[in-house]
Design a protein around this nucleic acid. Structure first.
Lengths: 351, 351
DNA sequence: ATAGTTGCAGAAACCGGTTTCTGAAATCAG
DNA sequence: CTGATTTCAGAAACCGGTTTCTGCAACTAT
């Protein structure tokens, strides 16, 4: 009776008539407005509960300007390295959103053409703010959103942190730790095979490598550094190159698991065995790493937690908190596995 | 001037005053209503274009009841097999949505607890309809949405097709084809290792296996059938079992790539070499399959296209088309790779 | 010439909420 | 006891669209 026929939904008007007040009053009661008496408020809450009333997002949005949705634009054609992480990350984001009653709006865009997609979502108010994964050191998305005054949080960091909130995994510390572990085992010639330089994560991981080398008192040989290896093929090629050099490395550090898996083929081609003749430590924690022989030692990133945190940060950002207060860095956790060893070297090279 | 200050958005009222008509007229013009003259319509379109006007989704939604968003609920904790497919699938969905100016609302739910999430999205009208991936033969989601009168499309099929629109890949034909190929090579003892029986896809793939065996004139030995193998570990264990049997199979058909990869370990443990002593063909087309030795022969599913088609079907479903007209089945494409051979057998077993 | 259509745009209601403005009753201060 | 303040709910405007209803003007048909 209080319900309009046809649709099963209860509206705010239904709640209002149910307790004999106006809808304005119910709205104020439910939104915690101060000029509503406790008795009225609880009556409203009870009635809403009883009728199964849930405010219509779009109706609220039109007045408040908030649709309680996080936006995520995925650039397709982006590298495979992107992929394994996606499901967990989405789960985290959407769960984080759900705890506040928010939802997640996902769009994809061709690589590099994401800006138009952001504009569309912004213009149509399909999202109150955006999560920007895979940030570049200088990121067009950051500039555009900053200029447009649209809230956003980075998964990663940006060269110019002005107005940026972020969550990031400490890839620098991880890579430094990797060096330390290898150095401790006696390695002196450690190669680093990094990711795409434009991305902040790749830069920071390389910084970590250099930090680690400095701490270990090892020289960084430019001949032992390669970059832009994002998949197995590139990782294999880079490794093959370095292994061909006159004084080849005994250990490899990869910035990206997917690339690290290419080392297996490269080593085989040179007659070397990982875990015995050379060691490798990588970063990401992709599931495939567990199935190589020996399994890949890596720094695992908890992408679900990342999504969870980012959702929280973005919601707070939308609600007006200062971005400078919304910055978190979490560690990656080292997963020690067979590939980190080089049994032949250990014996000869221990310091 | 025509713009309200502060916000950069142009509203329909801005467009209206710009050309000296009422907003109702602009609305009708832009939505192709018939009782608007061509001149007025084009003036409205031009002005809208010039002002960069884009209707506010939520404002439309409140009156039309449509928010132009597809809903996708991902059950987390669902099996790994789910994962590799997700990125491509999402890309297809969101691209399909975008071509019609729709967006994609994604939520996750704990395994089995998805119904509440659907209800929330429905009540808050965050989506006009849903894409249901990984359908079960008897699927609670189908029942609930059907009862609630909410449009949906299946990625897969349902035992009771009433009111269901769907897109599916013909796993039955693929599995039958796999049998035919192996039989042609002389295999007579072909094992089938299937997925979870509750899911339609697993059932249909097993049906395909049986069809194929019948066509090839081969008996189906129940001892050569295993089920519920969804990941590497389960696939390995099932294979190990079958290989231990008195009269072991010479070829394997897996319903799921991720499980098929377990055969490599199982074979190694028995001193068998894939591609020489035993053959295997699988289904899914996950990227890892390319990197095993020999690489995994498989039926590749184009998940991006699936997403694209499903988006289209769902939008048409929401617009009122008869679900019975919205059913598509596409073939999987066979990717011939080394694992499909068994060089030792071929010689002895040709028919 | 007259009545009946048709074409087209305006006026206003409506969707389901939020927010501002207003005013009555209750409370407080003097 | 009176005047000022506070408390709280109602009335109405508002958000940005869509849709219905109305009515004028220009055709058609007789």
């Amino acid at each position: 009776m209080a319900n309009k026929m046809g649709t099963g939904r209860a509206t705010i008007a239904d709640v209002a008539t149910a307790i004999g007040v106006t809808k304005g009053t119910v709205s104020k009661a439910l939104n915690g407005h101060p000029d509503i008496s406790d008795t009225t408020r609880s009556r409203a809450l009870r009635a809403a509960e009883r009728l199964g009333y849930r405010p219509l997002g779009s109706a609220q949005a039109i007045r408040t300007g908030r649709c309680r949705a996080l936006g995520l634009v995925i650039e397709t054609g982006e590298h495979d390295a992107h992929r394994p992480f996606l499901a967990e990350f989405l789960a985290g984001l959407s769960e984080g959103a759900a705890t506040e009653g928010w939802t997640l709006t996902v769009a994809t865009a061709p690589e590099g053409g994401a800006i138009d997609t952001y504009r569309r979502l912004i213009d149509e108010r399909k999202a109150d703010g955006f999560v920007l994964p895979r940030t570049r050191r200088v990121d067009r998305r950051v500039e555009v959103l900053r200029a447009a005054g649209v809230p956003f949080v980075l998964f990663g960091r940006h060269d110019d942190p002005t107005g940026c909130a972020w969550f990031d995994i400490d890839g620098t510390a991880a890579m430094a730790d990797a060096v330390a572990r290898l150095a401790r085992d006696g390695h002196r010639r450690v190669a680093f095979i990094g990711g795409s330089q434009a991305h902040t994560y790749a830069h920071l991981r390389e910084v970590g490598f250099r930090d680690g080398m400095a701490v270990a008192g090892l020289p960084v040989d430019p001949a032992l550094i390669a970059r832009d290896a994002l998949d197995r093929a590139a990782g294999q090629q880079a490794a093959a190159c370095l292994l061909d050099a006159p004084d080849p490395p005994t250990a490899f550090i990869y910035a990206v698991d997917a690339a690290a898996l290419g080392l297996w083929s490269a080593a085989r081609d040179k007659g070397l065995t990982i875990g015995r003749d050379i060691a490798v430590i990588s970063y990401d924690g992709i599931p495939e790493g567990a199935h190589s022989e020996p399994p890949l030692a890596t720094f695992v990133v908890d992408n679900r937690t990342a999504g969870l945190r980012l959702a929280d940060l973005l919601i707070r950002r939308v609600r007006g908190e200062d971005p400078a207060d919304l910055r978190e860095i979490a560690p990656a956790t080292y997963l020690d596995r067979g590939s980190a060893r080089a049994s032949n070297i250990q014996l000869t090279g221990g310091r």
